[in-house]
Design a protein around this nucleic acid. Structure first.
Length: 203
DNA sequence: ATCAAGATTACCT
DNA sequence: GGTAATCTTGATA
């Protein structure tokens, strides 16, 4: 655990690359959220890439008030509100004005389970199944980590939300497939997840 | 001005 | 498996 938290932050160069490569490389890295004096840590286990010339991407029709952060240089957090109910968070990638990001779809918590459970269910008493349910979806993990509108545009090189390096996964531990919940560009194989990880949202 | 769709989730049958 | 929840955006009038 201490080894994990003592790893270096991913740097600017990591984020300013092709979005599909960044997506794949984010698997296994440690997502950190500092809030209320706590340092919440979780392993990234499922992601999706959204690129500029990708019909399913929020950036496809150009810059707008909502997707503005996606067009910044890589290394920021893009948070959006969806279905009038949920927040989802993305890691902005690529050069300035490009418009690409990686949706974080699922994480595996490493600490502070009571705090996450309180945020999700209003109680610290949870079953084994409830534990899986803490962060096995893009809106669930935002609720658990208290990521919301105010966090849109957060600097991932700052000290509130950031990602730590971790050993690169082997090729055979990564599954590549099509994305979930979209109607356009469904055929692009831009979803990645860690094989056999119980926190992955859907097989 | 009105309307439909949306990178989801929880709860129902 | 179906659908309500309920805000924001972009299209059409």
């Amino acid at each position: 655990m201490n080894d994990i938290l003592n790893s270096p932050k991913l740097d600017k160069n990591f984020y300013v690359r092709n979005v599909v490569k960044v997506a794949k490389d984010l698997l296994g890295k440690t997502f950190v959220r500092r809030i209320k004096g706590k340092t919440l840590a979780a392993t990234i286990v499922e992601v999706e890439a959204y690129d500029a010339d990708d019909e399913a991407s929020h950036s496809f029709n150009g810059r707008s008030q909502r997707n503005n952060v996606m067009f910044e240089e890589g290394g920021l957090l893009y948070v959006y509100f969806i279905y009038g109910v949920h927040f989802c968070c993305n890691v902005v990638t690529g050069k300035a004005d490009h418009g690409s990001a990686v949706l974080i779809r699922a994480i595996e918590p490493l600490n502070h389970f009571d705090f996450l459970a309180k945020n999700r269910f209003g109680t610290t008493k949870i079953t084994e199944k409830g534990k899986i349910n803490l962060t096995n979806g893009p809106a669930k993990l935002c609720q658990a980590l208290q990521i919301m509108r105010a966090d849109n545009g957060a600097d991932l090189l700052g000290d509130k939300i950031y990602i730590l390096d971790a050993p690169k996964l082997k090729k055979n531990q990564i599954i590549q497939t099509t994305r979930i919940g979209i109607t356009k560009s469904k055929e692009l194989p831009w979803r990645f997840y860690i094989k056999n990880n119980p926190f992955v949202s859907k097989r």
